[in-house]
Amino acid sequence: MSRFNFPEATPKLFKAMFDLATVLGTEAKIAPVLRDLIECRVSQINQCAFCQRMHSQSFAEHGGDPMKLAMLPVWRAASGFDDAERAALDWAESLTEVASQERISQSHRALLDHFEEDEISELTCIISTMNAWNRLGIAQHEFA
């Protein structure tokens, strides 16, 4: 059930958000499957069922390993995630949970071993945009 329809209520704002998401998808340095994994984790943290469902499906469509998705809530204790994925997931959690500056700096240092500056910038934008979409999804949908 929807509380309001964001695309219809404010079409210009929706288009701006959608255009950003489109650029992140079409001019990406980050592989789609990693993007999906990050978007799923951010959506889990934010408890956005609508976005979780959507990005889980996208992860599968991009050939993501179903076991990674199943283990995503406990990724720190699970095998099957490479070091770059771990660094990206830690960055996603640090920014989504608004960790301390010390924790964010530590997480950023781990990214430097696996990603170039433009990729880190893109990851940050993916995480920030997903957080915005989550809040819009949570505001709109009672159930997904």
Rank of each mutant, 00 (worst) to 15 (best):
A87G: 12
A92S: 09
A87D: 11
R76Q: 02
F59C: 06
L112I: 14
M71T: 13
A99S: 14
R76W: 03
V98Y: 09
S56G: 11
E85P: 01
V74Q: 08
S58A: 13
A84N: 13
Q57D: 12
H108V: 08
L69I: 14
A92E: 00
G80S: 04
D83W: 01
A88R: 10
L69E: 05
Q106H: 05
S121Y: 09
R109G: 07
F81G: 03
D90K: 08
A60M: 12
E61M: 14
E102K: 13
V98Q: 11
E97H: 00
A87L: 11
E93W: 00
D65S: 09
R76K: 01
L112N: 09
L72Y: 04
S56W: 04
G64M: 00
S100T: 06
S121T: 15
E119G: 06
D82G: 10
D118W: 13
A92M: 04
H62E: 06
H108M: 09
A78Y: 06
A78N: 02
E97A: 10
L111V: 14
D65W: 00
A70M: 09
I104S: 01
D65H: 06
E122H: 06
L112A: 10
W91Y: 03
D90S: 14
I120C: 09
K68A: 07
V98L: 10
R76G: 00
E93T: 05
E85M: 01
A78P: 04
Q101I: 12
L111C: 12
F115T: 07
D65Y: 07
P73Q: 01
E85I: 02
D65K: 01
D82R: 00
E97Y: 04
E116F: 10
S107F: 08
